[in-house]
Structures are given as C-alpha cells and as structure tokens.
Lab assay of single mutants.
Amino acid sequence: MEVRTIKVFTTVDNINLHTQVVDMSMTYGQQFGPTYLDGADVTKIKPHNSHEGKTFYVLPNDDTLRVEAFEYYHTTDPSFLGRYMSALNHTKKWKYPQVNGLTSIKWADNNCYLATALLTLQQIELKFNPPALQDAYYRARAGEAANFCALILAYCNKTVGELGDVRETMSYLFQHANLDSCKRVLNVVCKTCGQQQTTLKGVEAVMYMGTLSYEQFKKGVQIPCTCGKQATKYLVQQESPFVMMSAPPAQYELKHGTFTCASEYTGNYQCGHYKHITSKETLYCIDGALLTKSSEYKGPITDVFYKENSYTTTIK
C-alpha cells in the first residue's frame, strides 16, 4: 500500500517557510505537534488534498525554529505562539472599519479597549522592536488589523473576551517599542525636605499616572512627601515624541487643539466601556464603527496623549 502524501510549508514567522512532505494517514499533531492554519487549530486533523502548498504555523520545537521565533517575536515564552494563534482565530472574524481616516474595530468580545489602543497607536510616533509587531502594525494602518490585535493580546497575556485596560495595554506595548531616546527629568520640591531631581528613561519617561493635564504637570502637581507634608512635583525636561497622561476616570474637559487623542471610560472596574476622542479640525468621538463630532467635550476621561518633541522648564 502506497503512502499518500502532500507537500506543505511549516513556519513560526510566515517569513521562513520549511518544506514538509506530510503523510495523509496521520494527523498534523502526530507529525508536527500543535499546528495552526489561519489561526485555526488543526492539530487533530489529517492532511487533505486542499492543504497542498498551504502554510501551517507550528510551535518552535527545534533550534532553527526557536531562533526564527525569537528573532521575529522577541520572546522565548513557549506558550506565546499558541496564544497568538488562538487569538487570531477570533480577531480574523472582527470587522476593521476605516473611521475618520483611522483603522478602528467594530465592537465584539469586549474589544473596546483594543480599538482605543489601536486608534491611539496610529496617532503617536512609535516604532516597535519585534519585527512581528512592526509588520502587523503597518498592515493594521492599511486596514488589516487582525494579526496586530492578536499579537497585542498575546504580548499582554490576554484572551479574547476578557476586559482590558488601555493604560495597561499601552504599557505592555511600550515595553516592546523603541523608547531608548526618551528621557524625563522631574523635580520634587518640599518646604521641609528641599528639592530632589529624578531622571527617568524609556517607558517611565512617557507615562504618568495622577493627572490628565500635561500643562498642569509642567506647572506642578501636589504629591505627598515622605515627611508627610505636601510637596510639588513638576516637569523639568521632556525628550520624547509623545507623552501619555493618565488618571482614574473623572469628568474632564478636553479643549480642541490642546491634545492629540484621549480615552474615555464609562462604567466601573468590573464592567465598563471605552471610547476614543481625537482632536482634528474639530473633536471626534470614535466608538467602534461609530463616529460623532463636537466642538467641545466633557466626560469621564482616563488617558490623554500629547505630541511632544523637546521641553525644558522655565521655572527657576
């Protein structure tokens, strides 16, 4: 009895394709271990004539594949690729409408935090270190965002349907971005203890939790000093293409032309909904596939993004 075979390709990165001759009487799992086709788990399936010449994702289970996976995804987590594939199996079914010149995501599976993050990423200057993220990001900007969303979920250790947080998501993504040249110098002034300067680099240099107003941050924000008295913390120097200011959701007025974009969060910790506000020729609110415009805006804002380049204080 002759062994019926077909020729397929296996890959971990969709760049390096490895030619395989597979036995049609055995499952993919018996031949390769966990195997995925377009995100779908085909591990328990036997090869079919229609699979001839198709590319299958496999887990990096030998040295060659491990090197290829690390170079593309910059992670050695053995569960990463499987999590990416199972997320992709959902995100490829989502709709990605162009809204006001940006790629958004039609609401499904509690994905409003991903839509808000995706919209924000198209408006701030950011370059990702893992080629996987950078490639998928370019495709997302062009309207094909399924891979990018699935990668975000995998890097953030999230599953489809789980509630997510924009600030946490951005923080994970910033860790995989090139923020080497970003720098922030802060000064804390206390009447009792004097003053202390701190220099922050990388992710810490672009994120701040405690106030939404970048102007206020430049002037000074009140913080408790270690001595128990009130101290003032203010920005001395900022070198970065953008800054992200966050605070627990509270009524906040966004003035046209003073910011790049913002995240609105309605609801409580267990259950809520994100919308995205962007400042173009007027203010726009993007909620999944829905767009509304207004000249002014007041609502429960939790993150505001500002364009920056270089700032030095005039406070002496």
Results as ranks from 00 to 15, higher is better:
I6N: 06
V8L: 10
F9S: 09
N16H: 12
L17T: 08
H18Y: 08
T19M: 09
T19F: 09
D23M: 12
M24F: 10
M26T: 06
Y28W: 11
K44I: 15
K46T: 12
P47N: 05
K54L: 14
F56E: 02
P60R: 06
E68H: 07
E68L: 06
A69I: 10
A69H: 10
F70W: 10
E71L: 08
T76W: 11
D77G: 06
G82D: 15
S86N: 13
A87E: 07
K92G: 06
K93E: 10
K93G: 11
P97M: 15
P97S: 09
V99W: 12
G101Q: 06
G101A: 05
W107C: 05
N110Q: 01
N110C: 03
Y113E: 03
L114N: 04
A115T: 12
T116V: 13
Q122V: 03
L126P: 08
L133E: 02
A136T: 08
Y137I: 08
R139W: 10
A140I: 12
A145Q: 02
A145M: 03
N147F: 06
I152V: 10
I152R: 02
A154V: 06
C156H: 00
T159H: 15
E162N: 00
L163K: 15
L163M: 12
V166H: 06
M170G: 01
S171W: 15
F174M: 07
R184H: 02
N187K: 14
C193K: 05
C193T: 02
Q195G: 08
A205D: 00
A205P: 03
M207C: 08
S213A: 05
Q216H: 12
Q216A: 12
V221R: 04
Q222F: 09
P224S: 14
T226A: 14
G228R: 03
K233F: 08
Q237Y: 15
V243R: 01
Q251N: 14
Y252G: 02
G257K: 05
F259W: 01
T260A: 12
T260Q: 08
T266L: 10
Q270F: 06
G272Y: 01
G272C: 00
H273G: 00
H273D: 00
H276R: 00
T278Y: 14
T278Q: 09
S279A: 09
S279G: 09
K280N: 15
E281D: 14
C285E: 12
L290D: 15
I301T: 01
T302L: 00
F305P: 00
K307M: 12
E308K: 06
Y311G: 07
